[in-house]
Amino acid sequence: MTLPFAMTVPFRIAPLSVIEHATRLVFAQVVAQHPDLFDRLGEHADKRYAFVPTDLPVGFLVEPAARRISVHRKPHLPVAHACMGGRFVLLLALLEGQIDGDAVFFSRSLTITGDMEAMLALRNALDDCDIDLPADIARMSGPFAPLVRRAAAEIRTRALSGEAATWN
């Protein structure tokens, strides 16, 4: 399924700096929880990776070596070595290794352009990480952690329901 409209609203109306700030907090949290992530990338850590959700007005640029993520409003996306496009929930599910990358990776639910080897390295590195976004996010949320975790998990479950049949 595509993203519910309500979920895309913040990305449409919030100033880019606010979106970017929130994204960086999440990214920093994930990096802190999974320090091995970038070791696995080896020579590919120096490359720039773009993730462009087809159902959001923004794209994300990840620079592993600098431990940096930035957000860019379409169509002003910076040049990257490798670029992955697809629905936001699919990109998130792939990030978490919830779905078998091989299946969606080369299906037309995702498009990959540029350096295939780099993107494959990143996919494999992510797969080893056991990233759990709701849990990772919740770790930074203090007393409201359980609430945030439940809300995030709820969104993920609803967004991914119905995906199973199309994994392959």
Binding site: D100, D102, R123, D127, D128
Partner: peptide
């Protein structure tokens, strides 16, 4: 061996 952990588990 090149497939993801979700695949392996299932």
């Amino acid at each position: 061996r090149q497939r993801g952990k979700a695949y392996v588990a299932e």
